[in-house]
Design a protein around this nucleic acid. Structure first.
Length: 593
RNA sequence: GGUCCGGUAGCUCAGCUGGAUAGAGCAACAGCCUUCUAAGCUGUGGGUCUUGAGUUCGAAUCUCAACCGGAUCACCA
């Protein structure tokens, strides 16, 4: 039974007028007032032709007589506060309890197919805090869309070619002494990242020397032996030189092994990975095709451009005069390959907001080239992650490394748990497991609870504070619910399939059921607005309410059996909503902690 | 300068399809562990929702303008 609909129908009958669906809006009653749902009657004055109080009074009285779910009402100014009957809440709870997939829409085989691209690392740098936000958002988004009934393909595009890769390769050749991840005792991505940094340092030294011998900055850059060697290496790579390609493959495989470790630790994965080395030539073809169709034009020097002035943008370069491709060309190529591989209905790119313009252009170009998903392309744009002391800058060494951060979170979780004596009863494996779940939960929740569009400040200290609006607080509540349920089993209490609807409920219990029943709506809205933050903040709200309830009312000690059982069922349901909600955020939940 | 995004408590963030006295957490202060897990609960203090106009019975929320902050406007990716 849908109360919103019942109220709408009642008002239509009362005033003999058809109303549009969103004309009657029920909202949650504010805490200070009695009731669950509130109807604001100001917009109805036109059809009631009475003052606000009279109108509210009239509708309230009518609802009591005609809608059984509504037990009481009160009127304050133009606000009609409705109290819903306990039996209605119990019905609602019974429905939810018996739906193991509560909150999710089942995915049909013919459901629309959404492809989500996220992560997109460079192979010359280990993942950092910014990637963590990207990965967490991308993965969570995939889960949320699945819960909204979409088929989802998670994909990653690895930027594995270009001059920057050659720099690491060159540094390894010159100064690496044949180092491998094993011999150096480092993850492959860190090893390569270190060589990239090394190249940069040596290159700067070289420039400094050249400049001190009288060359200008530009001249020094042109005379740089290291840089020329790197360029030469890129030429060899593009020409398919066997030795160069072999080295490139070996070093890349180290990096991928390193990335895999980080992805696994974060709990993210991909259905299909694309590599730019395999897609960058595709885009060129597509651009030339567009050129022949007259969508693009060629300049005198031979470079190819798209004129987007009609769309309010500038002209955009697509192929250089020497015929080589640029970033945009590659993205067109990747899009083509993806479209060949999957019948994608919608494409979502999880990429930072510094690329808003790029995706605006990409959308237009794909559309002009005839890709169905071009126009509807979604750039899921998110803000930067800053530190309390300011932006992360690689040259100042203030970049927070993803692996270090994850390890740090787990360590802190373990230390805090040990201090509190939470792990005393656990085996070593259990303790490790809990530390991992809690540490990562803290990190993930801290990142995901913030509106993706906003720049955010990541405070490592605050994120491992286990109080307040944090992952661990929510996980703790879940673990405690499991503990209550275990004890109930020990006491041989069996929870029924269906609760009798005659149990008297107090205000807090009704509020909790109301909150739980909102979950489905929250999941849908999170899918529509692409915002995991909606779910995170909802779960926190629910958990906070439940904690107060937990402290104010005894569950196992309740004298009346039927009330005790009801509270157990309510707790169990809230536990499963927490678990599902956290699942949508990619956060695990511990059975005990 | 053009375009896009943000500006809410000392700090980090909710709230934004217009509704009642703007909410949490952190930090500060005061209580609560013979208790189903105190990683918790309760209370106190803290606000010109950047500013100004407009629309409206009613604006943190919508419109316009200004100010501040960020991103972007590369033959980098």
């Amino acid at each position: 039974m849908n109360i919103q609909l019942s109220v709408k129908n009642a008002i239509e009958t009362l005033y003999g007028q058809e109303l549009s669906d969103n004309f009657v809006q029920l909202q949650q009653t504010k805490k200070e007032f009695e009731g669950h749902l509130t109807l604001v009657v100001f917009s109805l004055l036109k059809i009631s032709k009475k003052n606000p109080e009279q109108t509210a009074e009239e509708i309230g009285a009518y609802l009591i007589d005609h809608v059984p779910a509504i037990a009481k009402y009160n009127v304050i100014k133009g606000f009609l506060n409705l109290s819903i009957a306990s039996s209605y809440w119990l019905d609602t709870l019974n429905t939810i309890v018996n739906r193991p997939d509560y909150g999710a829409t089942p995915v049909a085989p013919e459901a629309p197919l959404v492809m989500i691209e996220y992560s997109s690392p460079n192979t010359n740098k280990p993942l950092h805090l910014g990637h963590i936000r990207n990965n967490l958002l991308g993965y969570s988004l995939a889960e949320i869309l699945k819960a909204n009934g979409y088929r989802v393909v998670k994909t990653n595009i690895v930027n594995d070619r270009g001059i920057h890769i050659c720099k690491s390769m060159l540094a390894w050749q010159k100064w690496g002494n044949g180092a491998t991840p094993e011999s150096a005792g480092k993850k492959g991505d860190h090893l390569i990242g270190d060589f990239y940094v090394l190249f940069d340092r040596k290159h700067k030294e070289e420039l400094k020397q050249l400049q001190s011998s009288g060359l200008s900055e530009k001249e020094a850059e042109a005379a740089s032996g290291l840089m020329n060697e790197a360029r030469e290496m890129l030429r060899k790579w593009e020409a398919g030189d066997l030795e160069t390609v072999a080295l490139w493959e070996k070093m890349n495989s180290w990096v991928y092994a390193g990335f895999d470790v980080t992805y696994k630790a974060l709990g993210v994965d991909f259905d299909k990975i694309y590599y730019e080395s395999q897609t960058y030539l595709e885009g060129k073809e597509k651009v030339l095709e567009g050129l022949s169709k007259g969508v693009f034009y060629r300049q005198e020097d031979g470079s190819v451009w798209a004129d987007l002035t009609a769309d309010g943008l500038d002209s955009k370069l697509l192929l250089r005069a020497d015929g080589t491709s640029v970033y945009m060309t590659q993205d067109i190529g990747t899009a083509k390959l993806r479209f060949d591989d999957y019948p994608v209905n919608r494409m979502v790119y999880v990429v930072g907001n510094e690329q808003n313009y790029h995706f605006q252009v990409l959308s237009l170009l794909l559309d002009k080239l005839g890709f169905e998903f071009g126009k509807g392309l979604v750039h899921f744009s998110y803000g930067m992650v800053e530190l309390p002391e300011g932006k992360m800058k690689s040259r100042e060494g203030t970049v927070v490394d993803a692996d270090d951060l994850i390890a740090g979170m787990i360590d802190t979780a373990r230390e805090t748990s040990e201090e509190l004596g939470k792990l005393d009863q656990c085996t070593k494996e259990e303790a490790d497991q809990i530390a991992r779940i809690v540490g990562l939960g803290a990190l993930k929740y801290f990142i995901l609870k913030v509106d993706p569009r906003k720049n955010m400040v990541f405070n490592p200290k605050e994120s491992i504070d286990f109080n307040g609006n944090t992952g661990p607080f929510i996980q703790y509540t879940y673990a405690r619910i499991q503990s209550v349920l275990r004890k109930a089993t020990e006491l041989s209490i069996v929870l029924p399939e269906v609760l009798p609807t005659t149990i008297p409920l107090n205000e807090k219990e009704q509020n909790l059921i109301q909150l739980v029943s909102d979950f489905e709506t929250v999941v849908r809205e999170a899918g529509e607005s692409y915002s995991p933050a909606l779910i995170a903040n909802y779960i926190y709200e629910l958990v906070k309410e439940y904690n107060q309830f937990y402290h104010d009312y005894s569950i196992l000690r309740e004298e009346k059996t039927e009330v005790k059982i009801f509270r157990l069922v309510l707790s169990k349901t809230i536990g499963s909503v927490i678990k599902t909600g956290f699942g949508l955020l990619g956060i695990e939940v511990p059975e005990r902690m």
